[in-house]
Design a protein around this nucleic acid. Structure first.
Lengths: 254, 254
DNA sequence: GAGTGGTCTAGACCACGGT
DNA sequence: CCGTGGTCTAGACCACTCT
């Protein structure tokens, strides 16, 4: 019989742990329920806390768990589908999208944004800060960069920052006729300021949606929106598609 | 003078480390260059290896670094923009999209997919496996679920799996007239099989793109594609937009 | 103050890629 | 074989939330 080789095909412990926990989550826990604390769980599974944490981290990344310092680890609800502005539509913030302007300043655009806008690096542009909420929860923080040339009616001098001015600027933008939009999605980690708005720790995983708004053959604005990757599923409604939120993921809640 | 309080506003070490490394990457390293190994780097910064690794992990998540066991840590090239099928277009795999069919089997669709397709849970459907490559690198692995009712010409019995059969099935699909598509993007971690195809470790962060193909008021197919989150930036070309890849990110290469 | 998750340490061994 | 990143341990202390 010799050494009993217990089918350890060298699957890492944390990976196996994650699987076990995932199944337990499906069968034995309801959404919102709090798990035992990390020290207990680690002891229960006979691993070091760091190892247990590696498994929890993965599950949090997948949107299965939610961890809050000083509180505990809870079972996360299914991800919410957030609609990213539909094709023909135009400026987000029109209907029920729940973007809320927070601030409006002027400043230098980051190099990447500046080149996309076709302005000189370091040139000052309008910067609108907006927060998007769904079901009472902040899900995204956005920075909208608008070169002065796109909104000639607005004087750059009148730097009365604040929501009021932000709304004024957005009103101006709505008057532009858009030819279309360019959009890209990538993984990032939350900057300190975004993290604060999203009620997460700095470095939390986010989906960065970069949008170029096009009008009259040129880019009139660039938006960089960071969505909480743990709680959001970005949805894109194409042409004639009947937008059905398949939240019918029905995870057992016994 | 007492305790000198050296401006530590309790920024975590790994966070500060990440910032320092990020700047060093911009100024002192060229794409593809290999960094010193983790033990050296940790010693150089006077931290434990685990802490150094936490910083590297973040940078890898942001697509700045690439780490390979047995080889080392190298500076990653800018993320490649991968176009997710455009609105009017139809089935991906038409033009230069470089999807390569690998396999075609029949099997039970996962519960989530089954409900989206409107078939009974556990009902067997066609499953096509495809890999997408860009510039010689595999960037995505896809599972395409097609209920038998969508391709009546194909007999389910003839289970000659393999690329040939996959191509046959795709040919049938192309004959369908699509009304549109529903698409969603979310963060996930690579399953073991996907990880293998993508040359990553299991659990690696991926962008999961779920697409419902709609024809004649119903869903004729569902695709679940997992893109490497570290190397990909998903791009969505909307209506009249002039698709310009702004790869002009110009990161210094001194 | 008690209890939680977040950070950090200083080790150890393993799996893998090249030589 | 050696050097690399990947996993794991058993502690410690800190920051936060709630009571």
């Amino acid at each position: 019989m010799g050494t009993t080789q217990l089918e350890s095909v060298q699957e890492p412990k944390y990976w196996h742990l994650k699987t076990v926990l995932s199944e337990a989550l499906d069968s034995d826990f309801a959404v919102g329920e709090v798990l035992p604390n990390e020290r207990d769980l680690a002891a229960r599974f006979g691993v070091a806390r760091a190892t247990l944490r590696q498994a929890l981290e993965q599950l949090e990344l997948e949107g299965r768990l939610q961890r809050r310092r000083g509180v505990g680890t809870t079972v996360a609800p299914p991800r919410v589908g957030v609609a990213v502005a539909n094709a023909q539509h135009g400026w987000s913030g029109d209907a029920d999208e729940a973007w809320q302007p927070v601030e409006c300043t002027v400043g230098a655009a980051p190099a990447m944004v500046a080149t996309a806008l076709g302005v000189d690096a370091g040139e000052t542009v309008h910067v609108v800060r907006r927060i998007r909420a769904t079901q009472g929860q902040a899900v995204a923080a956005e920075l909208l960069y608008v070169p002065a040339s796109s909104v000639p009616e607005l004087s750059v001098i009148d730097a009365a920052s604040g929501p009021a001015r932000a709304r004024g600027l957005l009103r101006e933008l709505h008057r532009l006729e858009l030819d279309g939009q360019d959009r890209s999605v990538e993984l990032g980690s939350a900057r300190a300021d975004d993290a604060k708005e999203l009620d997460r720790l700095p470095g939390a995983p986010v989906l960065v949606v970069t949008t170029r708004y096009l009008a009259a053959r040129s880019t009139v604005a660039v938006s960089v929106a960071t969505y909480r990757a743990d709680t959001c599923r970005l949805t894109f409604g194409d042409s004639g598609a009947l937008e059905i939120s398949h939240d019918a993921q029905e995870r057992k809640a016994s």
